[in-house]
Design a protein around this nucleic acid. Sequence first.
RNA 1: GCCCGGGUGGCGAAAUCGGUAGACGCGGGCGACUUAAAAUCGCCUGGCCCCAGGUCAUGCAGGUUCGAGUCCUGCCCCGGGCACCA
Length: 893
Amino acid sequence: MTNPDGRPKLPLAMAYDPARIEKKWQQYWEENQTFRAELDPSRPKYYVLDMFPYPSGDGLHVGHPEGYTATDIMARYKRMRGFNVLHPMGWDAFGLPAEQYAIKTGTHPRVTTERNIRNFKRQIQSLGFSYDWSREIDTTDPNYVRWTQWIFRKLFEMGLAYEAEVPVNWCPELGTVLANEEVIDGKSEVGGHPVIRMPLKQWMLRITRYADRLIEDLEELDWPEPIKKMQRDWIGRSEGAHVRFPVVDHPEIAIEVFTTRPDTLFGATYMVLAPEHPLVDAITTEENREAVSAYVERAARRSERARMADTGRKTGVATGAMARNPVNGAEIPIWIADYVLAGYGTGAIMAVPAHDERDWEFARTFDLPIVQVVEGGDVDRAAWTGPGRATASGFLDGLETEDAKRKMIEWLEAEGVGKGTVTYKLRDWLFSRQRYWGEPFPVVHHEDGKIELIPESDLPLTLPELDDFKPTGENFEAPLARVKDWIETTDPEGRRVLRDPNTMPQWAGSCWYFLRFLDPTNEEAPWSAEAENYWMPVDLYVGGAEHAVLHLLYSRFWHKVFYDLGLVHTKEPFQKLVNQGMILGESFRYFDDDIADEKKEPVKRYSFDQIRETDEGPVAKDDGRPLKARWIQLGDVAYDAEGNPVHPEDPDLRLERVVEKMSKSKGNVINPDDVIREHGADSMRLYEMFIGPLEKAAPWSTEGIQGIHRFLQRAWRLFHEGKEDEERYRPPVEGAGTDEQRRLTARTLQGVTEDIEAMRFNTAISKLMVFVRDIAKKDPLPMASAEIFTLMLAPMAPHIAEELWSLMGHENTLAYEPWPEPDGRYLEEDELTLVVQVNGKKRGEIRVPAEASKELVEERALAHENVQKILGGREPRKVIVVPGRLVNVVAPA
RNA sequence: GCCCGGGUGGCGAAAUCGGUAGACGCGGGCGACUUAAAAUCGCCUGGCCCCAGGUCAUGCAGGUUCGAGUCCUGCCCCGGGCACCA
């Protein structure tokens, strides 16, 4: 746009206006397909991935953009470093909330899901992330479901998917079974509903076959050590032995146990079976039958939770049967107790009370003999579980624990009564859910019970339409079981067959989405070998730590299956993993005595200093009555004259300020839309990166973001002159500026580069703040510094950077501008300031030439007046010179 | 109970190789501009004291070292994970 006289027309209002420039550049990027990634073997690739979100009805949360901003900075930085960057986004859109919403309102989950995706996408795009939207994925899209089902076919063909009657975690509230990983403390991970154990026929995936590889291959991954450890612990590999104990008077029966301490076999003084153990019935004597059945029944009724609450208190009952210890022929009683778990090992143990805490407690409770067979500790007072020399153990006597284990296993194998074995805590993955909103299993059931895959050409098998999404609650059946004309079908030969009423868990879609991103529109295959070969593995994966054992274990498992099928070329999908911390909210609470939520009148309110926390919850300090915490919505909080938060209707009631996880019920949720409207996307991005290290949780602060916004305004004003609405672009002066400016620019660039490489965005931003503060203090901003600054800012605050870049006269986006190199000549100082210490305490400073010798530095330090004063003429005992840092003079004592 | 993280100003933090503790930001204070306020700009801001200086200070108590937020030992507190796994 030009004036009649040909000069460029400068817009009048140029004040930093994020709303204007952010929209402008988001449109530019979209119209120019700036971030579209194409396979290009001539260039190095960088695949940077976010854990894709479940598009919930609440919309984006301020927690989401933290990880997304971090990956976006890395994506933009790597592009400027010449990498071909793959940075995609998609939707993990199957799942319970949409289905539960459907149950409540009758709205089809597809409708809700589509609406939520639209909203999420709008919000994510308003933050200016450089995703290649042409690769967007939705796990509920039939074109995606088709390949998830295709993968299930592969799993089935490899014998990794099977149906089995297993004890499962049934959640009556959710009306479905859950995987072990989805149950926390006997409650569902989602919603915290009670879960009961019961046997049901379910689809299982043989993840246990990959247990060893899932442990071993963790080694080479650049993951946080705690996450690796959680995975190792979850898999829970332990080495030991299986040993068979013959049952006296039952020549046909032997009880097999697993033990990690075969070296203590001589100390086994009794055995214990889990109440669910299949041999319980067969071995129980008539006299004990009644007591045993009563105990078994009671154990079956008790919930997992009650059982866990009792940990420590030992209960059990004798069967009356005896077993023979195979090493010494001793007859030992067989008991039943619920401290032995049916699901681990063989469901039976040999009890060595002297060297196992649980057995010791049980033996004490029921007065069973305790025989020490490992030296160490005092077994009358506590079990000795540490290592030691074997004793009272026949041929093991004198051997250290490790040697004794080895020798016992040799003996067991030679005698044919046992063998060395490895056991895992990890169970096979329970893979079916009694839900509607998931991938149907691509199988049919024949009348004779045979299961057959439906032909590949029939994929995707889509969900039938439904009006009522409720679980039936009868026979633990899924909603699909009611859709007779979908369930009942015929196979290609015309035989009557039934479809499977179950659907896959939400994890199915997220187990392989990172591979679909490589080649999202492929019709012939889930992805092409060419794309996989070029883009994989994921170089950087960022997401919440809550997926440590769920998503990350499942997807590693699938990836290994793909590896075995030759579908991928790396053993592991995610090379580097970073867990971002949570953004916490500030909430305000008080207490009242309406514990039943019956809106009773009058209600008595309590401030935080009038209550006391007990095991049963908060109670009033004065009369001890039970109370319930209440929260005031962030926007409704009132303040008294001293600025203390108070109840809006009761100004005398002081509110307690609590920093905690954001949730609707606590009224402390911050909506990204509001933040962007007020401060802009660049401020939001920078703020989330500035509040602390990425991995650490940090509270959201409404004041804090203003500091960032001010920084961006200052940066803007470096390039502008004039007041308020008459602000005009003022071009930086030609050239590279003064030595001081060159030094600041070079030093900032070096520091920011190192910080971004290490993902220390908080310190990178603080360096940019220092730069903005100092660069034009004395002399006008030079063009070279201006350009370098803009490029450094670009990965973190891309909109303002693009705007400044174009104001400086550049025609194209800076997204692909090469990352600048610092001028080495300006990184070094000619003169240094060294700290002078006496006995490690700072006493002064000296200025010395950068290349000053140790001797000169020493001499100058000793000449310092404070040093002279303290030494008082004495000779120093020692002088330590740390080059470039300090001089420490050690005074005589 | 066991295993990981982590405790630094009023607050978020920095110091990552054992070498000036508190960069940067928030909040607070003072000043400039303004009729005034906001905005902006400048300066100050860990405690204490005999205040040109000194002294104490990185959860607590010790230790190693010329020198410790950083390394070692013991303890306390907070967050997370696992939880009768034989």
